[in-house]
Design a protein around this nucleic acid. Structure first.
Lengths: 239, 239
DNA sequence: AAGTGGTCTAGACCACTTT
DNA sequence: AAGTGGTCTAGACCACTTC
């Protein structure tokens, strides 16, 4: 009976992941050098490299020659547009301005609970906001977050925070988003949406439902967005 | 004056790419073994591996332990859904049925010429088709292809061909699509589109403009699709 | 048994950054 | 000069496929 064990570098990768998940190495900070990790795990530098390479390919680590290997973070210019695919038809991408409409605690409806892996009726934080580009309201977002993780997230804290929301989640709630899936369709604007986005009732919109995951493929955010594509489009790369 | 040369494995990668581009190694066929390439290029096996790893990550090569390394091809179950992101809301993805509406030679309009890197008025092949899933018309596609490359592509050949269009391009026109960009927005169905997709005039649709590239980042296809998202959605992974 | 890709090692040296 | 990641080598052995 052959006992199949995973390759060493996979095991090392798992060990590194545990340190990231437990936030022993925090976003923005360096992890130990390759030589040190090799000594710690009693393997060669090459094996550690292969594990780090895999995590680098997954955007969890960032290598900087001469400086070290760092835990990726959502505070950083390069990370700002990683999850934001809506870009202007002309000109360069710019940062969105946020207007928080509402933040409240709600019991998870069944579809939200399903998406977040919670029990129906579990505590969640719900928030709505409008994102504008160059003053033009463009995205209407609704977010649901597990209450146990995001307890204490209030309107005041959101408004006070400068920078990307995933940065706030990282720093204030120790929740690092590492992956997301999106389901996109076309819909028509209803009355309430039309008013908020300053468009006509019935105008076509992109509906984008995103589920974001942290370590261990654990879903920690459900986001439903309506995108006005009059002057922007959703940019995607197929490889 | 320091002469900066690229790493050896990058140079090897470029050499391998040249063989792929020139179709010396054809889609579906094996390339020489790592040992043989190492001997040919006078480098170690590890250096060849690193070059092949990079091309594998770009979906240009496929490794099969014990068998060899093969040139990727669009004829293959696993490649069918690589560029097709529209999936049913329920159930498993199925193959689309094609109905070719029109194939003709046209002079490239300026926007098409720009996208394909041609002169305005250059010869192109234009084709329209409807794709259906389980008998339900879902996608209305318009394609422009450079006439110099796709000369001889006729309605008859398209209809006669079984399998994915990119497979046909590969086999019959020696043009291997390796990458694409998509720009997506929401629009309303006009009268003609509504009739073809059997939906109401004004119904919301996803507009997907795709530019596909072959080796050397050369654009070789412009595709404008209108997707009905009543029972399907566009699936995307953010990493 | 022979050939392929996959893993792992030990060591050398290079390129970059900081001290 | 010292420390970091990046490249390259040579060799060993493993896992899988084919003959």
């Amino acid at each position: 009976m052959p006992l199949t064990i995973s390759p060493l570098y996979q095991q090392i990768k798992t060990l590194l992941l545990e340190n990231l998940k437990a936030a022993i190495w925090k976003p923005g900070e360096p992890i130990p050098s390759e030589m040190e990790l090799a000594a710690r795990f009693r393997v060669s530098q090459g094996t550690v490299r292969k594990a780090i390479d895999a995590l680098t390919a997954e955007n969890l680590l960032i290598r900087r020659q001469g400086k070290g290997t760092f835990v990726a973070t959502h505070h950083e210019a390069r990370a700002q547009f990683r999850f934001l695919r809506l870009v202007p038809d002309q000109g360069v991408p710019h940062y969105p301005e946020n207007r928080i409409l509402e933040v409240k605690s709600v019991k998870a409806p069944s579809d939200v609970a399903l998406a977040l892996g919670l029990r129906s009726g579990a505590a969640t934080i719900f928030l709505r906001r409008v994102q504008s580009f160059a003053g033009v309201p463009t995205i209407l977002d609704e977010l649901w977050l597990p209450g146990t993780i995001f307890k204490g997230l209030t309107y005041e804290r959101l408004v006070a925070y400068k920078g990307p929301m995933y940065g706030l989640f990282e720093t204030e709630f120790s929740t690092h988003m590492i992956r997301a899936t999106e389901k996109i369709r076309a819909v028509c604007a209803d009355r309430a949406t039309a008013e908020l986005l300053e468009i006509k009732v019935g105008a076509p919109l992109m509906s984008v439902e995103r589920i974001s995951f942290t370590f261990g493929d654990k879903p920690v955010e459900l986001r439903r967005g309506l995108y006005s594509t009059d002057a922007h489009h959703y940019q995607n790369e197929l490889t």
